[in-house]
Design a protein around this nucleic acid. Structure first.
Length: 505
RNA sequence: GGCCCAUUCGUCUAUUGGUUAGGACGCAAGAUUUUCAUUCUUGAAAGAGGAGUUCGAUUCUCCUAUGGGCUACCA
């Protein structure tokens, strides 16, 4: 690569960053890091109508949480700023003027209402070479008329003049050559006088050029307008430094039709946003991966594999490994359905890798929420090490281990029916005596004693042990029984067996 | 409707003209166990359809079908 790699992630602050956007950011980041290049975060706030307060902060926080580091941006600074499009108005005005003076763009006065009316009356209406002379613009109107409208402060837009009948080629690094005829393109609005802002297309091209972007890596939804962008580079005379285009396949709904959207999360019960988000207007809350107990490393790993693979069977990769292995050659061309189950599995695996002490720190706030206090770190760490194998999320820790902190108040009906019969209370009373006779309550000491008692009396191992478990845990599940009793201690264990005898019917 | 992109197990994907079409999630069965889970082993499961090109196509070309995207003074 003769040119320094510079990529950009350019979200618009119209809401929380979507998980598909996160993946685009991630691929940009991996590509930049691998090539020793730079990553720019540009805020594309050219739609004053859809601006949502808090969205920009959300984007920063989400990327930081995931470990996607930005080199240049609104907060980071850089020599090609400002990095927020609403602060680049002068630049855009100047470039619009360049196009206008060169005769590559023109001024149009048609109001939104007029355009709607035209679309209504003409099927498949398109503002292009075939129709522009019947509209109200600087091409169809006389110079005097145009001047008068302008002098009177009429609202206008600037449209790109597209020559029909030309095959425009876009060279996409994932898809290869994509050709489209310019006749199917319309004279896109480049600038609106109403808010003195450009539209995406103009701002995008001007900024990418000025910011010396080498690779435009973005979602596939931009592929149809890529030829327009190529034409814009031509119109400005920037073809020599035009960036390479990469259009990533989309993330699709898990259950069928369309691309993954905001609503799918709540409908299907998984987050589509990295962080929890509360809509400032409606107050509606959308769940986030962070709040749902996902580890950022797991989210990154899982997301990286949705549309890319390392070319072998490797599945677990740290950010650094992803950076080393990433390649556009191994990006897939087709959309990927979002498989939430696999995401869960990734989190499970990453949770197992986490040191117990660290998991414990994540668990503590949840304990507090459930009103549990006064247990030592050492105790919690031992609990965590015992039950972590059965969790997918940090929050699962509570359900899997609550009996270590509070006595059971209910006993699982199914287990009671299966494991508790008339003779059981008597059996448990005997067990209490056996337990009372043991001084050293470690697993190594209690286990042989209790098992020996069962064998000597010729009792049924399964019946006794399951009933025992029922009184201590509340249901027939959990780690090795004598590991539980060791941690609970003699007094508490005996107390629970007694309570069980009283309560279970 | 028009234009563009795509199409391998249910899902994510490997295989870039010659493979018993591989792996992972999920699912099922078995092993282990005093329980549940973990874990381990095994299993079922795929190249959309039709024409070409070729000695040979999942792989190349075309058509059809299906899916997706775009078609705003949104990005």
């Amino acid at each position: 690569m003769d040119q320094k790699v510079r990529v950009r992630f350019a979200p618009s602050p119209t809401g929380p960053l979507h998980i598909g956007g996160v993946r685009t950011a991630l691929y940009n980041y991996l590509f930049a890091r691998q090539h020793g290049g730079e990553m720019i975060l540009r805020i594309e706030d050219t739609d004053s109508q859809r601006f949502v307060p808090g969205a920009e902060e959300y984007i920063n926080e989400a990327l930081a949480w995931l470990g996607i580091k930005i080199d240049e941006g609104v907060r980071e600074g850089g020599e090609y700023g400002p990095y927020k499009q609403s602060e680049r108005r002068d630049i855009y005005r100047e470039h619009v003027k360049m196009l206008l003076n060169a005769g590559k763009a023109y001024i149009a006065f048609d109001t939104p209402e007029e355009l709607d009316a035209r679309r209504e009356s003409t099927p498949n209406f398109q503002y292009d070479a075939s129709t522009r002379m019947s509209m109200r613009n600087s091409l169809s109107l006389s110079a005097d008329e145009v001047k008068e409208l302008l002098d009177n402060g009429a609202k206008y837009v600037v449209r790109f003049l597209i020559e029909p009948g030309r095959d425009v080629e876009v060279n996409d690094l994932i898809r290869g050559k994509v050709t489209i005829n310019s006749s199917v393109l319309d004279d896109k609005v480049l600038y609106k006088s109403a808010d003195d802002l450009p539209t995406y297309h103009l701002a995008n091209i001007v900024d990418d050029h000025l910011m010396k972007v080498s690779h435009v890596i973005r979602g596939e939804e931009w592929l149809p307008s890529a030829p327009l962008h190529v034409l814009l580079y031509e119109a400005f005379g920037w073809v020599d430094t035009m960036p390479a285009f990469v259009h990533l396949p989309l993330l699709l709904k898990p259950d069928g039709k369309g691309k993954l959207s905001k609503r799918d999360g709540d409908r299907l019960g998984f987050p589509v946003f990295p962080l929890e988000w509360q809509d400032p207007k409606s107050g509606e809350i959308s769940s986030g991966y962070r709040e749902s107990g996902y580890l950022p490393e797991a989210v990154v790993n899982f997301l990286a594999l949705l549309g890319w693979n390392p070319g072998d069977d490797t599945e677990f990769m740290s950010m650094q490994e992803l950076i080393d292995k990433f390649s556009l050659d191994h990006c897939s061309k087709s959309g990927a359905k979002f498989d939430f189950e696999k995401g869960k599995w990734f989190n499970h695996k990453y949770l197992q890798e986490l040191p117990d002490a660290q998991l414990t720190e994540l668990f503590k706030p949840i304990l507090k929420e459930n009103g549990v206090e006064g247990f030592s770190d050492e105790y919690i760490i031992r609990v965590v090490s015992m039950v972590k194998g059965r969790i997918n999320f940090v929050k699962d820790l509570w359900e899997q281990s609550r009996y270590f902190f509070v006595e059971p108040t209910e006993y699982d009906a199914k287990s009671v029916k299966k494991r508790w019969n008339e003779g059981t209370p008597q059996l448990m009373n005997e067990l209490i005596e056996v337990l009372n006779g043991i001084d050293d309550f470690s697993c190594a000491s209690v286990e042989p004693t209790v098992l020996g008692w069962i064998t000597d009396k010729n009792y049924h191992m399964g019946n006794v042990m399951n009933a025992f478990r029922l009184t201590v845990v509340g249901e027939c599940k959990g780690p090795h029984m004598f590991d539980i009793t060791e941690l609970l201690g003699k007094e508490e264990t005996v107390r629970r067996v007694r309570l069980g005898v009283e309560r279970i019917k």
